[in-house]
Design a protein around this nucleic acid. Structure first.
Lengths: 146, 146
DNA sequence: TTTGCTGCAAACGCTTTGCACATTC
DNA sequence: GAATGTGCAAAGCGTTTGCAGCAAA
């Protein structure tokens, strides 16, 4: 289990407080789960893992919490395949997705860092498109599936 | 309307024939629609546009055709938002997606062309991940929405 | 006490499936 | 005539919503 430095129960509590939101056991559990799991779980994944600790918890709560965390900027929703995945790492980085097993690997952002100014400039001047974020997804086969 | 050089009724007929697939009016219409529309329509979009010409056509046919075209390599499915979009341009290129209106802009692949060898090497050596394709998505605001 | 959250259930949007009939080759 | 595609309807999956009751601040 790799701890994600940005999303800790502490930082999360602070962020919630600042946003005027409440600290509930379910939210704490979801954050803890996200913070100790680098696999970018789906809402489904989280629901199943927490089912043991919170037998009555519903999907709505999972989605509500993920929405709240997204708005506060603690997690980032990703569309890497069919279902939404939630990335607890707010630092800019890219992803490698295995075409066979679906595993997601976080990549430290490679060479031409957060959208090189020249690329950004080209896009903005040529297409009149204001770039806010860039996502790179590498698809192929992970070590276990090669 | 920008014609996409790779997907023409002719090239498509050939590809279908080679794959042992049949030429039907519905397929021709879907290809024609895709070939003259750079906006990467969804299955929904195509269905609605062709409803006039084929009042009895069903979603299943649209999806079946898109599957067939994908397998032949004439189109590429994209997950840029909620629904799948279909890109008739097989040449490597990236996309800019407007956060407000959803417009998709095709970008000619920028400087460090199809995954620079050094990045690829780093990913393969460090993460034992075999890179097949790379997708870049720039998100922000298009000219009309700024 | 106020405000916001949870849980339930139902609805939603997009996609896939199974099967009888029609069409292309 | 054999193989393949179409249309219909129903089901599937992931996500969102409305609302009554409950919990945190």
């Amino acid at each position: 289990m790799v701890a994600v430095p940005h999303l800790t129960p502490d930082s999360m509590l602070e962020a919630l407080k600042q946003a005027g939101l409440k600290r509930t056991p379910q939210r704490m559990a979801i954050v803890r789960e996200l913070a100790t799991d680098a696999s970018h779980p789906t809402a489904q994944d989280l629901f199943e893992r927490l089912r043991g600790a919170f037998p009555t918890m519903s999907f709505a709560t999972v989605y509500n919490t993920l929405d709240a965390l997204t708005k506060i900027g603690l997690v980032r929703p990703l569309r890497l395949g069919g279902a939404l995945r939630f990335d607890p790492n707010a630092k800019p980085h890219h992803h490698a997705v295995c075409d066979r097993c679906g595993t997601v690997i976080d990549l430290p952002i490679p060479s031409p860092s957060p959208t090189s100014p020249s690329v950004r400039k080209t896009i903005e001047e040529t297409f009149h498109f204001e770039v806010h974020t860039e996502e790179r997804t590498y698809r192929g086969l992970c070590g276990r599936c090669i």
